[in-house]
């Protein structure tokens, strides 16, 4: 009975975990594609700015980025921003950088000849990206992006650093309160279930795209 009750308590935090996960994913994936294309840009100023952004984001701990996004507006402009907004912004900035590098490797792996052929057939760059390059990129980057997506599920637990109540923070609280390891084990179980679902979804997507090479 005690365990069932714990499950319910943790479940109430699962919503926040999932919302952070979903919003981050839906913004940072398309944004990652755009950043990847900009990183490849022939304009050196643009590509260098993007390179610097990726270096900074990948080169600093995420916990620092979260705290920075939340507190910097206060120290600089003396304004508070909403915790939830801050966490979404921090996650999007972070995951866009990682996704963009995965997508860039995918885009660069498509032979240049295909866009040249499409160009001589009268297609413009937009059509070439949408109909020829990106569909192939999706297939190529699925395995690598599943890593990122899985890590995102687990990284949502960092939201508690700026006081957001999500599943893992509830688990820790219960563990302290009950002086027991069981809440943490249950939290681990929830993460496992989520990651299991994601893995199955990725496997299915890979199978569906197996109709060409």
């Amino acid at each position: 009975m005690e365990i069932l009750n714990l499950c319910k308590i943790l479940f109430s935090g699962l919503g926040t975990t999932l919302i952070i996960f979903c919003i981050t994913l839906f913004i940072s994936v398309p944004l990652g594609v755009v950043v990847a294309i900009l990183r490849n840009s022939k304009n050196k100023i643009i590509s260098r700015i993007i390179a610097l952004y990726i270096l900074i984001i990948r080169g600093t701990p995420m916990i620092l980025q979260i705290i920075f996004v939340y507190f910097a507006p206060y120290y600089i402009f003396r304004i508070y921003i909403d915790r939830f907004l801050a966490i979404i912004v921090a996650f999007v900035i972070n995951y866009t950088a990682y996704f963009s590098e995965i997508f860039r490797s995918g885009i660069n792996s498509i032979p240049k000849g295909q866009s040249e052929a499409a160009c001589t057939l009268g297609l413009n760059m937009f059509q070439i990206y949408i109909y020829i390059i990106l569909p192939q990129v999706i297939k190529k980057v699925l395995p690598a992006s599943s890593n990122e997506v899985i890590s995102l599920v687990k990284t949502t637990s960092l939201a508690q650093t700026i006081g957001i109540v999500e599943m893992f923070s509830l688990a820790q609280k219960q563990a302290n309160y009950l002086f027991s390891i069981i809440p943490l084990i249950l939290a681990g179980g929830y993460y496992l279930i989520l990651v299991g679902i994601i893995s199955i979804a990725f496997n299915k997507a890979e199978k569906r795209l197996r109709y060409y090479n």
Partner: peptide, 12 residues
């Protein structure tokens, strides 16, 4: 229009 040595068909 151009035909290439390595075909460059759209594989998808």
């Amino acid at each position: 229009t151009m035909v290439f040595q390595d075909f460059n068909l759209f594989p998808n």
